[in-house]
Design a protein around this nucleic acid. Structure first.
Length: 121
DNA sequence: ATTCTGACATCCA
DNA sequence: ATGGATGCCAGAA
């Protein structure tokens, strides 16, 4: 009865051959592929990698990443900028960067994902 | 809205 | 090293 089954997160550890390094590289490659003026979500990246990494872990990997990785194009499932809760980052920086790329925000500060989510062919 | 749970890379003691 | 807490999440109750 109960319990929701884990939608994501097949373990990285265990018999899986991909080490954390390669997984990290893959995450960064995906983010780098997102064009300016578009966004994706943590969960989307997780799903795209067949659950080999959890959405939360995606965020962790983006915490410290090379300068050529457009981390600002990754938002949460509600279309909000999670970085504003970090404290070690200027409030509104992510939003400002996205607006600079043409992304528009609603009154409540969220992004309409249906419209701005990147849909790769 | 709020709370809990699953998942996991990092951090810190 | 190693156990527990924390965190750029997401989904279910």
């Amino acid at each position: 009865m109960v319990m929701g089954r884990p939608p994501f997160g097949t373990r990285i550890h265990g018999e899986v051959e991909g080490d954390r390094q390669s997984v990290r590289d893959e995450v960064q490659a995906i983010v780098r592929a997102v064009p300016a003026g578009r966004v994706v979500t943590y969960g989307w990246i997780s799903r795209r990698m067949a659950g080999r990494i959890s959405p939360l872990a995606v965020g962790w990997m983006l915490h410290r990443c090379p300068d050529d990785v457009p981390w600002q194009r990754v938002v949460n499932a509600s279309g909000r900028c999670s970085t504003d809760r970090l404290g070690d980052m200027p409030q509104g920086l992510q939003r400002a960067m996205l607006e600079g790329e043409g992304v528009e925000f609603r009154e409540d500060g969220s992004i309409e994902l249906e419209r701005w989510m990147w849909q790769p062919v």
